[in-house]
Amino acid sequence: MLTDPAYLTEILINGLLAGGVYALIAVTMTVVFGVLKLFNFAHGAFVTVGLYCAVLATSLGYDPYLAIVPAALVMSAMLWLLYVLLIDRIISRPTLTQVIFTIGLLTAADALIEMIWRTDPRVAPSITSGALFIGDILVSKPRLVAFLAAALIGFGFWAFLKWSWWGLAIRAVAQHGQAAQLIAIPRRATLALAFVLSGVATIVAGILMAPAITVTPSASYVYLGIAFGAVVIGTKGNVLGAMLGGIIVGLTEALTIALVGDEWKDAFVFALVLVFLLVRPEGLFGRPANV
């Protein structure tokens, strides 16, 4: 079956499409990790928030994609508040404190969602729902849209970091926060910006993904695992690496589903991550820390 080129291509295409969104989620996690040095367990929860924004839009009678702009605006404000009140205090604390805190955030966010929407699976149908044929290959339209949008946002992020003044500020603070302050870079504002932008992008990724999947609150853990994996593979703190990591995870998932079965996908993705941790822990783009 695998020898059928059309089937193989279909698998790879679907993996790529899923991987594209994973890539965005990984990019935002790696930015938070690299800039704020924060190991954010709540990252998956941001995706879930996005998913349920889409669900909310649907229940109000709107197409989920329309939720993107209002969600981005509202969430920017909320994330900024979250940063100023809590996150800013947390990043100077030891890693363990951060871990417990972000686990708390994850749990609280999930619980809040559960209180409103219960745990029943939800759907967020959109005008893009359905599939289309590209040549011989059946492709899910929402996934295609999600991929394109995620790619756009992802590259936009990368370009922003590379070419804009604030992007430079973010990179400077990531490398050396105190030195950056010495050259008049407002450290806290930069950290807040990095956090808010990453958070919003993650939430938008969730909104984009909603029409393509069935939504449950347990999504938080699923995407957390995927993000961790992709970040490790692509090297912590490396944006392009995270993108590549996300694609790799998506492809691995798709191949596993096709070859072994849907139930095994988590195992194979994590096995890949484990291999990377042992053989090349610094990731694809990292420098081996050797003597």
């Binding site: 809590l86 205090r89 947390i90 604390r93 363990l96 404190t97 417990i100 805190f101 686990i103 708390g104 955030l105 994850l106 749990t107 609280a108 966010a109 999930d110 619980a111 809040l112 559960e114 209180m115």
Partner: peptide, 16 residues
Amino acid sequence: GFSLFAYGCALMVFPL
């Protein structure tokens, strides 16, 4: 889900 929410909040407050 409320007690879970409270639990989550406790986890955020405690380490601080």
